[in-house]
Simulated assay, not measured.
Amino acid sequence: MTNSTSPQISANPPLFAAVPMQSVGPFKLIGDVVVDDLMVPLATYESPLWPSVARGARVAAHAGGIRVTVVDERMTRSILLQAPHAGLATECVRHIQARHADLQAVVAKSSRFAQLLDTHFQVVGNLIYLRLEFSTGDASGHNMVTHAADQLIPWLLAQYPHLQYVSISANYCTDKKVSAVNGILGRGKYVVCEVTLPRKLCQRFLKTTPEAIVDLHIKKDLLGSIVSGGLRSANAHVANMLLGFYLATGQDAANIVEGSQAINHAEVTPQGDLYFSTTLPNLIVGTVGNGKGLDFVRHNLTQLGCDNPDVAPGVNARRLACIAGATAFCGELSLLAAQTNPGELMAAHIKLERAHHA
């Protein structure tokens, strides 16, 4: 007899939620990824997102393309250990940090792709918050770093018998939560997207001026984020584009929480043109792993050129991160331009959403 209070999962095959999906573009990328005429799939219920991102991609292509740069990449897992007192905790953790080669030897037994890059720690009372940072090839790496940490913990407890296990995750990772540490130390791919738009292109495609966009950026993205108490975030709606991109490419969509901590920067150049950039320090994406075997995901990864079997581990995932960042960049540029013009934003939603339900 089944206990009615026990967790239950249907024995039937899983069903799939249908989310509308369209490809938008074309995108032109330069820098760490070079590609012309790339169409990017976005799965979203917010239909105005498609033409908005496409507008940003179109004007950037006319300006020579979006320069994409991968500044850094790493996936993290923090573990929580306990010592008898803070002095011993500090002594142990400094000794642990000096044994990088020994730690990596243990990590290597868990995966042929996981490489320990660095460690950071915080001691709170007699607690050790140990942040482990890894490279994970083409995987986003959530499970890979957790498995590596699972191998490290018993080794550490054997090496340092005064320590005790508390948790495999200490919230110093930080996974799917808003924090400062990810932006400072890095989690996922750190991507910068930028373009310089000639004034005439701003006026022709975006129906605005460089000065208007910079002014709005200062008053909305920067000051507005300060007023609201935003944490390492100065953007208009990066989460919108990341969610659509993550759903279309088989990513763990909850990662938009830290992924949306993006920072826009805008200025008028001495020539009177617009420099605009979006910096995304926490893009967590992968081209292998759970969710990537679905037919539509494989089709989309192929369309994006992110399933090339002939490249070194990590190349496909870095390319995917660059495209994800560029997609967010285009949505940011287009929305800010729209919001410099009274009524334009709502008019687009009425035309593309409410008209279908009239």
Rank of each mutant, 00 (worst) to 15 (best):
M1N: 11
V34D: 12
R187P: 01
K109A: 13
P26Y: 04
H217N: 14
C193H: 03
L127P: 00
L80N: 09
V53I: 14
Y172N: 08
A17V: 15
T119F: 01
D273M: 03
L320H: 03
T44K: 00
G56Q: 06
G314T: 05
L223Y: 15
D32V: 07
V166F: 01
S52E: 15
S6D: 14
G186Q: 08
V315N: 04
A148V: 04
F16Y: 11
N12M: 08
Q261T: 04
G64Q: 07
A17K: 12
V34P: 00
L15P: 00
A234G: 01
G25A: 10
L130I: 08
P20Y: 10
A312R: 05
E344H: 14
A355N: 10
D32T: 10
H147Q: 05
A63P: 02
F329P: 01
A98I: 02
Q115L: 09
S233G: 00
L88D: 08
N235Y: 11
V191C: 06
T119M: 10
P161C: 11
T69E: 05
A57T: 03
G56M: 01
Q115D: 11
F121D: 09
L231I: 13
G186M: 05
D307Q: 00
R94F: 07
G244V: 10
L38P: 00
Q203A: 15
R99E: 14
Q303P: 01
V68W: 07
L206W: 07
L156Y: 02
L49T: 04
I66T: 01
K176C: 12
C306G: 04
I323D: 03
V195R: 02
C306I: 03
L206S: 02
T76A: 11
Q303C: 02
P198D: 15
V288R: 12
L336H: 04
Y45C: 07
G250S: 03
L301C: 07
V123S: 04
T69Q: 07
G230H: 10
H217C: 07
V71L: 12
A180P: 00
A60K: 02
H349T: 08
E353A: 13
T340M: 01
L130R: 02
L197M: 10
H265R: 10
L103M: 09
G64Y: 09
I256D: 02
V311R: 02
A326P: 00
F245G: 04
Q164C: 07
L42W: 10
D310R: 05
I153E: 03
V191S: 06
G183H: 07
V107S: 11
I350S: 13
A347G: 10
P41A: 12
Q151Y: 14
M21G: 00
S334G: 09
A108R: 07
G272T: 11
G186R: 11
D36T: 13
H142S: 06
M1S: 11
N341S: 13
V71G: 04
